[in-house]
Amino acid sequence: MEFGPHFLLASLEGAVNAAVLALMAVGLSIVFGIMRVVNVAHGEFFMLGAVLAWWISSLVGAHPAYGFVVALIAAPLIVGAIAALADHFVLRRINYDPERTIVATIGLLYVLQQTTLMTFGPEARPVEAPFNKRIALPWFEKTAEGFSMYWPWGLGTTTYKLAVIAAAAVILIGLWIFMTRSRIGLIMRATQLDSEMALAYGIPVDRVYALVFGMGAAIAALAAVLVVPIQQAHYLMGHDPLLLSFIVVIIGGLGSIPGTIVAAILIGMSDGIISVFFSPTVAKILATLLVAFVLIFRPQGLFGKRVA
């Protein structure tokens, strides 16, 4: 395949990556932004979403679309509820102390991972996509009579991959509207800005925290349900997305939703493209290098506010 079509193919793969990564990282970002908790277990909520999606869709049977739709609703709710319980029984007990929450969420990571292993086993589990039509994509070439269109062999994508990109965009826009227009969003932002004053003005900060932690986990689970027809569910699948989410959140600016989305597109796309042309390892090396440079030259991230 020539460079042009090859690049288009890589970009499409990158866009799917970016879409899933944006969701995942936004979940991590709102938890950090509002609660100042670095949630090391975030990748396990993603993994749990994927494994539950497999489990639920295999329970439902019937047409794969039914199972998928049920999983799309149920998996994030279950994962969100587990996270809210973890907030109530673990994070609240240690007063959201920054160092102790890191250690506690590392513990949570292993509890979730090993429980999944013991319950569902070590196999990678596929989930069938609700629809998955192949679309061949055209490319242009210059001939003596001007431009003409042709369909290079191997250049194509699937309707499902395009749907994942669209779904992520819709969810992110919905989340943005929720945070900026709704009353609960207002309460969350007030809590983020000054939790003590929020308390003095009648906001039940404990409940807001449980909701935010649950929401962050549910968004990760939602991303996982979307990705699991492309990438199989497995109890160790949380590691890479966690690392990439941290990279994205640091580059975008901790706690900034727009920054997180821009950085997710940057990292997701470049990860996809570099993986195709070079290797996934090179892609990770470059992303990590970028984090190092951001930390040196712009420690608050691209969109973050400098702490006075």
Partner: peptide
Amino acid sequence: PAHLIAKHGIAYVPQGRRLFSELTVAQ
């Protein structure tokens, strides 16, 4: 619990104002 004190009709104007800085006046 602390978040219910305000509902009893007690309001607090803290030193240094401590507004919700990034929210608008209306918010």
